[in-house]
Design a protein around this nucleic acid. Sequence first.
DNA 1: CATGAATGAGAATTCATTCAT
DNA 2: TATGAATGAATTCTCATTCAT
Lengths: 174, 174, 174, 174
Amino acid sequence: MVKQGVHATPMSQIAKEAGVAVGTIYHYFNNKEEIIEEIYTIICKDFGVVMMANVPENGVKKQFEIMWLNLYNYFISNPLAFKFMEFVGVPPIITQEIRDQNIPNFITVRDFFLAAILNKDFRDINLRLLLQITFGNVISCARLKFKNELEMNSEQINDALKMSWDCVKNPDKH
Amino acid sequence: MVKQGVHATPMSQIAKEAGVAVGTIYHYFNNKEEIIEEIYTIICKDFGVVMMANVPENGVKKQFEIMWLNLYNYFISNPLAFKFMEFVGVPPIITQEIRDQNIPNFITVRDFFLAAILNKDFRDINLRLLLQITFGNVISCARLKFKNELEMNSEQINDALKMSWDCVKNPDKH
Amino acid sequence: MVKQGVHATPMSQIAKEAGVAVGTIYHYFNNKEEIIEEIYTIICKDFGVVMMANVPENGVKKQFEIMWLNLYNYFISNPLAFKFMEFVGVPPIITQEIRDQNIPNFITVRDFFLAAILNKDFRDINLRLLLQITFGNVISCARLKFKNELEMNSEQINDALKMSWDCVKNPDKH
Amino acid sequence: MVKQGVHATPMSQIAKEAGVAVGTIYHYFNNKEEIIEEIYTIICKDFGVVMMANVPENGVKKQFEIMWLNLYNYFISNPLAFKFMEFVGVPPIITQEIRDQNIPNFITVRDFFLAAILNKDFRDINLRLLLQITFGNVISCARLKFKNELEMNSEQINDALKMSWDCVKNPDKH
DNA sequence: CATGAATGAGAATTCATTCAT
DNA sequence: TATGAATGAATTCTCATTCAT
C-alpha cells in the first residue's frame, strides 16, 4: 500500500491487505483520512521510543550519535514507515493539527536537544531549526539508501554522522 | 493545483487554471502523468540555472553560501515549485528514469562540489552524500518557513548557513 | 442497447437498462469488452442448445430442417441476440480467442454435420465450409426479415429451406 | 482504418491516412457519417461493375459462376472493402435510405437474376431471397478465408460454387 | 460486530467538430 | 481552400462510502 503512495491506494486494497472486509474498516475509522492519521500517529510514537533506546547516561556526542543511528536504523528496518512519512507526512494529507497532536511523542527527544543547547554543547540556535536539520540529515541518508544511490556502508554512515555532528555541535566548545 | 497535491487535482481544474479546455491539454500531453513529468523537468532546469546565478569566481566558502542562498530563495519565491517537489518529486510519481533524465541540469552544480572535494575544501566523502545532505538542509529550512514553524529571519538563515558549511567543509583545512 | 450497436451504447445506458448503478457493473466485469464477450458467450451457449431441440432420432433431411428452423426461429424470436451477433460477433470486437472458447457449445451441431458427411448424406466437402454456408443461409433469411425486405412467410421459409437442403445434400444420394 | 472498425477510427486518423488535415475533410463532407456513406456508395458501385466483368453472352450456369467468382475475387483482393461491408454495411450505421439509394448500382445484377427466374433457369422464388442467399454464400466463403479458417483452394471454391449453384438453379430444369 | 455488493459522484480520457489564420 | 489547434460534451472507469443481511 505505501509502496505506491497511500492516496493512490483504494480502500478495497487496504481492506484486503488487512485481511478484513471494507465495511469492517468503517467500524473503526470514520473515513480514509482517519486511517492515514492513525498510521501517522503510530509511526510518530515509534520514533519517540526508538530514538531514545540505549542512549547512554552521559556524553552528549555519544548520545547524539546513538539517537541519530537509532533513527536511521529505524527507517532502514521499517521502509514502509519511511515511505509513509515521505508520501503522506506532508500537508495537506497530514494537517498541522494532526502534526501538533503528535508533538508529545517527541518530548524526550526535544528535551535532549534543548538541554544540549542550554548546556552549550549544541549551537545556540533555534531548537526547531536544529531538530529539523538533524532529522533532515537522517532522512537524506535513508533516501540515498532506498533509492539505491548509495550503499551507505559503515564508512559512509560515519561520514554522515560526522557531518551531522559538526552541524549541531557548538564549535566553540567541541 | 500544487497547493493541494497534484495527484488530487482533477484535469478539469488544471485546465481551468491554465485557461484552456480539458481537451486542449491532451494535444500537448498524452496523460496526466506526462504533465507532472513536464513540470518536474521544468523545475529541475530552473534549479540548475538559478543555483549558479551570481556565484563569484573565487572563494569556495562564499561560492557555497551564494549557491545555498540561491536555492533557498528560489524555493521561497517559488512556493509552488517547492511544494511540487515535496509532493511529487518522489517515486513512484516521478520514476527513476525521469529523475535520471534530469541529471544534466545539475551538472554545473555537481562539478562545483566535485572540484571542492578534490581541492580539499570539502570533506573527502561521497559526492552524492554531500549533495543530498546540502540540498536536504536547504529543504529543511524552506519547510520550516512554509509550515510557519519558523520565521527564518536573516539570523536564522545565517545560523542554517553556518551549520551547512560546517557540514560540508573540510575540517582539516578550514 | 443492441438495437443501436453495442459499441455505441454508453455504460450509463447499459446500467440503466440493467436497473443497476454504473459502478455495480464493474463488480462483475472489468470493462466494457468483457460485457460484450459475456453476452457473446451466453448467446453461443443458447445456440448449441436451441438448435438441437426436438430433432428427431432419424431421417437426416428432417433433422436438418428442424435444426435450420430452430436456428431461424431463435433469431426471429431473439432479435437482440441476432443483432448482437451481426454487430459484435465480428473481429476485432470478438477476438479469435473468445470465438474459439465458444466452440464447445457447437459440438453437437458439428457432430451432426460430420456424421452426415461420413454417412454420405451430405456432400463430401470441408466441414467448416458446410457449416458456414448453412449458418449463412439462415442468417440471410433472418436479415431479410429484420430489414423488412421480405415477409418470410411459410412459403418463403420453405423455399429457403429447400435451397439450403440442396446446398448441403449429397446430390448422388438424395 | 477499416481493420479496426470504422466507428472506432477517429477522424484524426482518417485524415492522417488520407494525407490531409482534419479540417480539410470537412470541406468535402459535413460529418463522419457522410464519409462512411460515401465509402459505402463507392464500394457498391464497384460491386455492380465488377460482378458483370467478363460475363459471357450465353449459358446461364457459366454466367452465374463467373459472377459468383467475380464477387468472391473482389472481396479477396479488396479486403478493406470486405471488412468495411462487414463492419458498417449494417444498420444503423448505413441507414435503409442510403442502402436504397445504392440499389441502382446493382440493377444489372438484379436483372440477370430476374431474367433467370423468368426463364425458369433459377428457382421460382422471391428475387430478393435468391440474391441475398447467393451473396451470403460468397460472403461466407470470404469470411472463412479471411478468418484463416479455410485455405479456400480451388477445390474448396469449386465445392462452394457447386453448392451455390444447386441453391439457385431450378431443379426441374437443370 | 462483520460483511461485501451496491452506489454514484467525480476523475481521466476521447474525439467529432469548429474556426481563426 | 487548407490547416490543425482548440473545444467540451460524452464516455469509460474508479473508489470512498453506505447499508441490508
